[in-house]
Structures are given as C-alpha cells and as structure tokens.
Computed example of a mutant assay.
Amino acid sequence: MSVRRNLSSPDAWLSALARIWRPVALLVGILALWALISAAHLVEDYLIPSPGRTLSVAVDKAAYLAQHSWVTTYETVIGFVLAAVLGVLAAVVMVYSRTVEQTLYPVLLFAQVIPKIAIAPLFVVWLGFGPGPKVVMAVLIAFFPVVISTVTGLKSVDPQMLELADTMGGGALRTFVKIRFPAALPHLFSGLKVAVTLAVTGAVVGEFVGSNEGLGYVILQANGNFDTPLLFAALLVMSLIGIIAFVALDIAERLLLPWHASRRGEAVTTTL
C-alpha cells in the first residue's frame, strides 16, 4: 500500500484523531483554567492577562508580530540546517574513528553543559548585532541532540548485516549508504525533532542579548514596558513556530520512513 493511500484512508485519519485529542483536550483545559483565573481576578491583569486580551493584542498587532516572527523563523531555519549538517558529519566521523570519538565526545559534552546565555554576549561582540549571533546560538543549542541521536543510530545497526555486506564485497561507502545510514534515520529524525525546537530557543536567546528585531526583541520590549498581553502573544507565536517545525519534521519522517512510522503506531496499544 502506498504512503499516499495510508495518509488518506479513514483509518489513518481516525488514528491521527486518536493521537491528538488528548493534547487538544489538555490545551483546552489549560486555556479554560487561565480564563477562570483571569475572570476571578485571582491574579492582577498586568501580571497575567486574560486569553481574550492576549488574543486581541495578537490580532491588533498581527503585522508587527509577523514581521518579527519572520526574523526569528529565518534565524531558526538557518541555525537548524547548519546544526543538522554539522551534527551528522560529526557523528559519522565519530562512528568510523574511535580516536576522534574519544577526543571529540568529551569536548561536546563540556560545551553542552555551558549555559549558552552566558556566552551569548561574546558572539554579539564578535559578530555584531546582525543575524550571525542568533544563528550561532541556534546551532550550538541544536547541535548536540543531532550528534547523539545520529551516533546512536549508526551504532545500532545489526552487526550481522554489516558482516553480510562485508562478505558480499560491499565497500565502506556502499555499506554506509545502503545499510548504516538508512538504519540510523529513525534515530536521526528523533534528534532532529528535538533539535528544531531547541533552535527556536537558541535564536530567541540570541535576540535577548543583542538585537533590534525578532521575537526575543519583542519579548524584551514588552517586558520593559510591562505590556504583558504583547509578551504573552509573542510567547505564543514563538511556541507556534516550534510546533509547526516539529510537525513538519514528523510528517517528513512518516513520508520518508513509512515502515518505521506505521510499525511504531501499531506497537502502541490504547487502553483508555
């Protein structure tokens, strides 16, 4: 059965609905609780605005938010693509070279535990106030998950498959292209979906430190002016960017790896 038929069949739509109704119900519940808290005046409006007020500001300043959202999206996409490419290349080298892995892995771990917000001002000094520092921050935050997931995937190949390929005369390159990399794709996509959401955070963190555009700039300006409705609206837009990017990668995974996606979906048994 083709992937297109699987995606368009009633069973596929029912399966998708079964997966999303719980998070949708939770989101509706959170919004209802938020509205009740605002209506009961349990928290001052200037601290937590009501959902209606936040939505009204988002609609009134839609063009303003869209302009800055485009900047953050651009920085996120560039940073994510660079992190994905560099992460996969680093993982391949580490898998095929034990010396490189033993040398590079501790350095990557050390770099990962350093708070990125602490070194963000350095990138502003070195690269200025353009998109460069934001892209670098996105790369740094998104790089580690890609490396770890790809290394795990490349090492999870059945050794008997590798022995069989070697016995049949398959070279290292053909074995990688035909066996290792395809087997690592499920792990790679898992890392990519984590990395793309972190890339959004990295871009915004870079904008916090030094920028005159982007959602991070909007959040800082709204916070300084005690404009909490605009701040919440910017946070919601930021979350929406991450969700759309995550869903796009999830769809790409299902299209490129239907065998993996269908097997994973069938393995989950619903009891409630």
Rank of each mutant, 00 (worst) to 15 (best):
Leu86Gly: 12
Gly87Ile: 07
Gly87Asp: 12
Gly87Pro: 07
Val88Ile: 15
Val88Met: 11
Ala90Thr: 15
Val92Met: 13
Val93Ile: 10
Met94Phe: 05
Met94Val: 03
Met94Ala: 02
Val95Phe: 06
Val95Asp: 00
Tyr96Thr: 05
Tyr96Arg: 11
Tyr96Leu: 06
Ser97Phe: 00
Arg98Tyr: 11
Arg98Gly: 12
Arg98Leu: 14
Thr99Pro: 08
Thr99Cys: 11
Thr99Ile: 13
Val100Phe: 15
Glu101Ser: 14
Thr103Gln: 09
Thr103Arg: 11
Thr103Cys: 10
Tyr105Leu: 15
Tyr105Val: 14
Pro106Thr: 02
Pro106Arg: 05
Pro106His: 02
Val107Ser: 11
Leu108Asn: 06
Leu109Thr: 14
Leu109Pro: 09
Phe110Trp: 15
Phe110Glu: 13
Phe110Met: 15
Ala111Cys: 12
Ala111Asp: 12
Gln112Tyr: 13
Gln112Trp: 08
Val113Pro: 07
Ile114Pro: 04
Ile114Ser: 06
Pro115Ser: 07
Lys116Gln: 10
Ile117Gln: 06
Ile117Ser: 01
Ala118Trp: 08
Ala118Met: 11
Ile119Gly: 09
Ile119His: 03
Ala120Trp: 01
Pro121Leu: 04
Leu122Asp: 01
Leu122Ile: 00
Val124Ile: 08
Val124Tyr: 01
Trp126His: 06
Leu127Arg: 05
Leu127Met: 06
Gly128Ser: 04
Gly128Gln: 01
Phe129Cys: 01
Phe129Gln: 03
Gly130Met: 00
Pro131Ser: 12
Pro131Trp: 08
Pro131Thr: 04
Pro131Tyr: 09
Pro131Asp: 09
Gly132Leu: 01
Gly132Met: 01
Pro133Ala: 07
Pro133Glu: 00
Pro133Lys: 05
Val135Tyr: 06
Val136Thr: 12
Val136Lys: 07
Met137Asp: 09
Met137Arg: 08
Val139Pro: 05
Val139Glu: 10
Val139Thr: 13
Leu140Asn: 13
Leu140Trp: 12
Leu140Gln: 10
Ile141Gln: 07
Ile141Phe: 04
Ala142Lys: 04
Ala142Leu: 08
Phe143Tyr: 07
Phe143Cys: 09
Phe144Leu: 06
Phe144Lys: 02
Pro145Gly: 05
Pro145Gln: 08
Val146Thr: 02
Val146Ala: 02
Val146Asp: 00
Ile148Val: 03
Ser149Arg: 01
Thr150Ser: 00
Thr150Val: 04
Thr150His: 01
Val151Tyr: 01
Val151Ser: 00
Val151Ile: 04
Val151Ala: 02
Thr152Leu: 15
Gly153Gln: 04
Gly153Thr: 02
Leu154Arg: 03
Leu154Pro: 00
Lys155Pro: 05
Ser156Asp: 06
Ser156Met: 01
Val157His: 03
Pro159Trp: 13
Pro159Asp: 15
Pro159Ile: 02
Gln160Pro: 13
Met161Phe: 12
Leu162Pro: 01
Glu163Cys: 09
Glu163Val: 10
Leu164Asn: 10
Leu164His: 04
Leu164Phe: 10
Leu164Ser: 09
Ala165Leu: 11
Ala165Val: 09
Asp166Asn: 14
Asp166Thr: 12
Asp166Gly: 11
